[in-house]
Amino acid sequence: MGINRLDFFKVLGLTGVSLAFGGKLNARQTKADQPELENEDQTEFVGILYDSTRCVGCQECEIVCAKTHGLPEPVDEPNPDIVRKTNETRRTVVNLYETTKDAMLVKTQCMHCNEPACASACLTQAMFKTKEGPVIWREDKCMGCRYCMVSCPYDVPKFEYHSSNPKIIKCDMCFDRVNEGSVPACVENCPAEALTFGTRRELIAEARRRINNDPDLYYDGIYGEHEAGGTGVLYISAVPFEELGLNTSLQKKSYPELTKGFLYSVPSIFILWPAVLLGMFKATKNNQNQEEND
């Protein structure tokens, strides 16, 4: 059998590289499974609780958001006939929906998933889940491929299509302010206290408390507790969430989970394929030599 020393080392080298690379990959993925354990300092993810029953639709959140991030202030108002959408000039919008219980308001922005599809999709980690919880976008790393937009189940990241040096625009939960110990601008300025900032654990407890204290007012459920593997922004409201235009058909597993099977198979293929191919090459080569000798 004709495996000589050189070929042996070639296979060995390839195997080693794949093992090293694969190991790193696996390690990362396992960490993502348990977000709570990810940080050695036991930092908990922060989030925002939005209580639709308290919202008055004053758009103060939109206005301060625009001011904080240097974007134009909103010129239109919540209107039940039009679904206003976030875009490259606004990171958050409030919409009005006619529901089974009166007209209801709902604020939309980035959901800050526990395991964000956008961050796992980003090949440069420009889209990044911070250990504090906010999902941020880092301009110096981004190549503008827009794979985050393809992957995000909430269609949150927006792209400046009419710029020669485009940015991805999305809510970053005012990460700079949060880092300084402050709260996001929208939370701070909400006159109706419809927005609450805190750790995700506290917010879920608070949401449960409100629902339990007034079961007649609230619909029994917290949107974002399990959707897409859990999100940093949580919603409670008086009506089922699909009536507020929130997508309730999203899977409960996190979205990066969907590519895990494929990514896990990569190291094994990198180990097996070259070895198999080299074996086949040697086998057919020997055959041919025999034929020639016969």
Partner: peptide, 28 residues
Amino acid sequence: LDLGKPWNVINPIIGNNFGVSSVLFLVA
């Protein structure tokens, strides 16, 4: 042509940063 910031295309190669959990990283 399709990249918004094509000059950053070297980032996943030079390690700014290696987004190894991305399928696109593998494809690139």
